[in-house]
Computed example of a mutant assay.
Amino acid sequence: MNDWRPSASGATLARRARLLGDIRAFMAERGVLEVNTPLLASAAPAERGLASMQVDDGGYLVPSPEHGLKRLLAAGMGPIYQLGPVFRAGEAGRWHNPEFWMLEWYRPEASMADLVAETGALIETVAGVRCMQRCEYRVVFEAVTGLDPIACDTTALADWARQQRLAPVEAAADHDRAFWLDLIMSLAVQPTLGEHGPQCVIDFPAEDAVLVATDAERPGVARRFEWFWQGVELANGAQELTDADIARERMQREQRLRREAGAVETALDERLLGAMAAGLPPSAGVALGVDRLLALICGFASIGEALAFDWPRR
């Protein structure tokens, strides 16, 4: 069937326009400057979990404006944000669309706690809801699994996941801790979060941290946070890593893991590493999925209804 019609109603598109206006008003009131970095970049992020779309003449459609925004921070910009489309390969489903809108912003000299609070204020302002009290990753993970996600070993995580039928018994034994933590978090823990309002989870395990600072006083903990609402991830933020040498080492680790998994290995973003070496200021930042937020505000069961044309109708 040649269905040319939009997936969103006129009322939804009007609500979307109001949401975008409310976001921009919030940022303007707080002195955060809107900027636009390229959507087509010469290098892709190294993170193992990000599949970037490559274009025919070289380069990648950005899965996040993070690298461009951090280059601006290193050049001396103050608080900045970008609001617009980003792209990720292979992400189509109930709460995923390969092309979606992201709000991402950074504050130099800010702490993770500052951005947690500001993200909560933004959500409350534009969605008209009351956010729940933040909690630690370790606490919510233990409440569901009985396992300490910072201290337990890979075998314990894998055994629990298999017992709960989150993974087949024959699932590869060579998966690392990051794989099992992510699997359990997404399938068992995340659905329990944000039932009574948006909820922030802080201090994630450090296994897959790439451009995220780790806690100097608590080994194994990354200064990262995520916001959830009705079991859906809304935002992902962190205290940002500023050390270019550590960033290079972690990017190379991610490349190796990509190679071992048979995934496409991407070149390091030397421009980002150069910016970090020149002096990326201490900063905190966060990225928020605008389409998901709109869908939850409107009470939709999936992201498609919040888009003018969802993936099947593109």
Rank of each mutant, 00 (worst) to 15 (best):
A267F: 05
E99G: 05
P281E: 09
M53I: 15
F300T: 02
L211R: 06
A275C: 04
P65E: 08
A110T: 01
G220D: 08
A143G: 08
S42C: 02
A287S: 12
R271K: 12
P108K: 05
V144Y: 07
R94V: 08
P108F: 06
A25W: 01
A277G: 09
C131L: 12
P149W: 05
L40D: 00
A11C: 00
V32C: 14
G68Y: 13
G93C: 08
Q190C: 03
D176C: 04
A161C: 07
A158M: 05
E66R: 11
R259Q: 15
M132E: 15
R218K: 12
L50A: 05
M102N: 01
A247R: 14
P205F: 10
E66D: 14
C135I: 07
D310L: 04
N2D: 13
Y81L: 12
V212Q: 12
C200N: 01
N97R: 10
L83R: 11
W101C: 03
G237V: 01
A121W: 10
A263V: 00
Q252I: 11
L115C: 12
V140D: 09
A178V: 06
A206E: 13
L50S: 05
E265C: 11
A113Q: 13
G279M: 02
H196T: 10
L268W: 02
I23T: 02
A247F: 08
V232H: 06
P6A: 08
R24L: 08
A46P: 00
G93I: 06
P79L: 04
T119I: 06
G220N: 06
V116P: 00
A28V: 02
D159Q: 14
M77D: 06
Q54S: 15
A127F: 07
W229M: 01
Q230K: 15
Q133N: 07
A287W: 04
L19S: 03
R248Y: 03
E240C: 11
A110M: 01
I123H: 05
L166W: 06
V290S: 01
L288H: 04
A306F: 07
C200R: 07
L293M: 15
A172Q: 07
G21T: 11
I303W: 10
A25M: 03
M112G: 05
A28H: 15
S42L: 10
Q255D: 04
D245K: 14
A308T: 11
P6I: 07
Q163K: 14
E29T: 13
A244T: 03
F87D: 04
S7K: 10
D148Y: 04
E207H: 15
M77S: 13
E29P: 00
G58A: 11
H96L: 00
R16C: 00
R138M: 00
A89Q: 14
D291F: 05
C200G: 02
A247V: 02
D182H: 03
L73M: 14
P219Q: 12
V286G: 03
Y137M: 10
G93W: 13
R248F: 01
H196W: 12
A17C: 05
S52V: 09
E34N: 06
G128M: 08
P149R: 03
D176R: 12
E91F: 04
